[in-house]
Simulated scan of single mutants.
Amino acid sequence: MAAYKARLKAFEDTLNNERIDLKTLRKLCFNGCPFEHGYRSTCWKILLNYLPLDVSQWKEILEKQRKLYTHFVHEMIVEPGTKASAGSQADDHPLNPNPDSNWGAFFKDNDMLLQIDKDCRRLCPDLFFFQKATEYPCKEIIHADSRVETLRKRVEHCVLHSETLKVDRFGKSNMIASRRKTSEEYSLLPDGQEAHWEVVERILFIYAKLNPGQGYVQGMNEILGPIYYTFASDPRNEWKEFAEADSFFCFTNLMAEIRDIFIKTLDLDAVCGIGSMMASFTSKLKEKDEFLYNRIKELDLKPQYYAFRWLTLLLSQEFPLPDVLRIWDSLFADDKRFDFLICICCAMLMILRDEIISEDFPTVMKLVQNFQTSKVDLQRVLSKAVDIR
């Protein structure tokens, strides 16, 4: 208990300086950020280059960035949503070939939005947080007098309705309307409320609109989710209120570092992106445990079967959320964070070494694709990763 209080005091002293000592902060965060007093939320904002080291600049930068995000919401969701609710202009219609037609962009966005919506609704299914109503919904969108079509309503309108002509045995025909259901149905909050997953959906939609060359790629929700959860759970209301905007910019900065692994054109054989990361992973494993490396090769257990997800989603699917947050403390704190990610992945395999050596392909495959079921202590994984590094 005394040691934990000493750690809290170390974070307090470091964050209360006029200028943050980055080296000290990295060292503290690498060993885990406390949730108390919003330390993790603040530290992640610094480590993800959202807040500068000069604390006197924080207020101005936060006001500027939050105002900019509000502008994005208005331009990309509120204005188009208002037009959709009010109906388009008479000379604009779905078949309008004019490149300036609002309908062209609308249809193009819908495919992307449907995927974002599907992914966000099932975000962290074991955690009720994302299904709960946020205390700070977008007022422009959910206000009682608002005439904006929300992204959720837009998705609901996208679901196709069809009519089937049915003829009975007496020759009488009837049109039967049917609604094409999505693969999963979800309970929704009443009008006037927004679930946290809807906030995540809005962030991803805006990000995709601002990055048309990349757009939305499945899995980005798993990267944004822990960031938003951390900021939206901040014990300080004055920070929690702006979790959406702050999450957007921290997610954007993180994606700037890892965007190559989400670009589809950079496939497994590319010299950069996910192919390069998996090559580095297998090379590191061979260097640290050549016998295990050869056994995995003998089983024909290719890294794309399991390491693709580990590396692309920063292990967010391999551990429960509290453990993911702890892992990300170390990743964000490390100045070579993705090298350390590779070390963690190697550690995971080396901890399963006995089973990999003794078991057959189906058993080993199940183990590495469902690492959570092995119930390995996270601290053991991190300690092994530090030894590997």
Rank of each mutant, 00 (worst) to 15 (best):
A2F: 07
Y4S: 13
R7V: 11
L8D: 08
L8K: 12
K9N: 14
D13G: 03
K23H: 08
T24R: 03
L25M: 08
L25R: 03
K27Y: 14
F30Y: 14
N31D: 10
C33L: 09
F35H: 08
R40D: 01
W44P: 04
L47G: 09
Y50Q: 10
S56R: 14
Q57I: 05
K59Q: 15
E60T: 13
H71Y: 12
H71R: 15
H74M: 07
H74S: 05
E75Y: 11
P80L: 12
G81W: 01
Q89T: 07
N98I: 02
K108R: 13
N110V: 13
L113F: 10
Q115E: 11
K118S: 11
L123I: 15
L127K: 00
L127Y: 01
F130C: 02
F130Y: 04
K132S: 05
A133C: 09
E135N: 14
Y136A: 01
K139F: 12
E140Q: 11
I141T: 07
I141C: 07
I141N: 01
L151V: 06
K153P: 05
C158K: 00
C158I: 06
V159K: 10
L160E: 14
L165G: 02
V167F: 12
D168S: 00
D168Q: 03
S173V: 15
A177S: 13
S178I: 11
R179K: 12
K181E: 09
K181H: 14
S183P: 11
S183K: 15
S183L: 15
E185V: 15
S187H: 15
A195E: 07
W197V: 00
W197G: 03
Y207Q: 06
L210F: 08
P212T: 00
Q214E: 10
Y216W: 09
Y216I: 09
P226T: 08
P226D: 06
T230V: 09
F231A: 01
S233G: 06
A245F: 00
D246F: 06
D246S: 13
S247K: 01
F249E: 03
L254C: 00
M255K: 03
A256R: 09
L266Y: 07
L266A: 04
V271M: 07
G275T: 02
G275K: 01
K284V: 09
L285C: 10
K286E: 13
K286D: 08
D289N: 07
D289W: 02
L292P: 03
R295C: 04
K297D: 07
E298R: 07
D300Q: 14
T312V: 15
P320N: 05
P320L: 01
L325F: 04
R326C: 06
W328Y: 12
W328G: 02
A333F: 02
F340E: 02
F340V: 04
M348T: 00
D354F: 12
I356W: 02
V364H: 03
L367C: 12
N370F: 00
S374R: 13
K384G: 08
D387V: 14
R389A: 11
